[in-house]
Design a protein around this nucleic acid. Structure first.
Lengths: 134, 134
DNA sequence: TGTCTTCTTTGTAATGATTACAAATTTATA
DNA sequence: TATAAATTTGTAATCATTACAAAGAAGACA
C-alpha cells in the first residue's frame, strides 16, 4: 500500500484514500474491471463512494500513465492496472478479457509521427470456450 | 459499382440501393467516416435515408466481413472500407485517423484460442501536427 | 393485375455509459 | 481558528447506439 501511495506522490498526485484504493485495486486484479465493478468492489471499503469519483479517479490515473484504459469493449471502458506493454484478447463467447504477451509490433510508415499509445486488441474464442466452455 | 453489387451478392446479401451506396462510399474513402458522416454524405443521393438504416447497413456489412469497425474513438465508431490488415493511428491534436502498414504482430500465448479479429490502434501526434499543424 | 408474404427501410422512443456542474465536504495554509 | 483550495458527491444533461413497431418496396404466384 505504501508503494501505491508513493507512486501517486511521485507523479505529484495527492494520495487521497479513494485514489490509493482505486489504484491498489487495479494493481491487484487481472480482471480489467469496468467502472461499475470498481465502484461495487470498493463500496464496502468506502461506503460514501460515488460513481462520479470512480470516473474522476480513473481518468486522473490514466492521464498520469498509472493505469491503462482498455476500449476493446465498444460500450463500456475497462481499466488495467498493468501498464507493461501487452495485448488484450476478448472472448466473444464468455466476454472475458485476457492479457497476452506481445513480442513486437512491426510497423512501417508513421515517420515523424509521435506515438504515445499502442493498443493491440484481438477477439475470438478463448481456449476455455473452445473446449466446451464453463 | 457492379463489383460492389457482386460483392454483396457473393455474400448472399440482397444489393439494395442503400447497401450498395454505403459499401461503395466506404470503399472509396480513406477518411474512416462516422455514422453521422456517412449519413450526411449519402443524404443527397438518397433523400429518404434514415440514420437507423445507416446503422443497420454498416452492422450488416461488418457482420459479413465486408467492412471493418474501428473503435479507436471511445465515443463514436468509425467505419473502414479497407479490410486488408493494417493499423490505425489517431492524432490527438487534429483527430484525424491514419492507416499504417503492419508487417507483423508477433504474439505468444493464445494457444488454442481462435482469433477472429486483430486490431492495432496507435495514438499520438501526426507528422502534420508535429511540424506546426494546419 | 391483384393479393399475399417477406424483406427492407423509417421514425420514434428507450437505453445506458459518460460528462457537466454546482453544492457539500475535506484538507491545507496562514 | 478562519480562510482558501482541493476533493468528493449527487443530480441532471448529453449523446451514440439500440429496440421496436409501423410503413414501404420487392418478389412469388395465380
Amino acid at each position: 500500500m505504501q508503494n501505491i501511495t508513493d507512486e501517486l506522490i511521485n507523479k505529484g498526485i495527492k494520495p487521497s484514500f479513494i485514489r490509493v484504493s482505486v489504484l491498489n485495486y487495479l494493481r491487484n486484479t487481472i480482471a480489467h474491471p469496468t467502472i461499475e465493478t470498481i465502484y461495487n468492489s470498493l463500496k464496502t471499503l468506502i461506503p460514501t463512494l460515488s460513481k462520479t469519483s470512480v470516473y474522476n479517479t480513473v481518468e486522473l490515473l490514466a492521464d498520469f500513465g498509472l493505469i491503462n484504459v482498455v476500449t476493446i469493449d465498444k460500450n463500456e471502458s475497462r481499466y488495467d492496472g498493468d501498464i507493461k506493454f501487452h495485448g488484450h484478447f476478448k472472448c466473444e463467447k464468455c466476454n472475458n478479457l485476457y492479457d497476452f504477451s506481445l513480442l513486437d509490433v512491426n510497423y512501417s510508415d508513421l515517420k515523424n509521427f509521435i506515438i504515445n499509445t499502442k493498443d493491440v486488441y484481438f477477439s475470438g474464442i478463448c481456449a476455455n470456450c473452445v473446449k466446451g466452455g464453463v
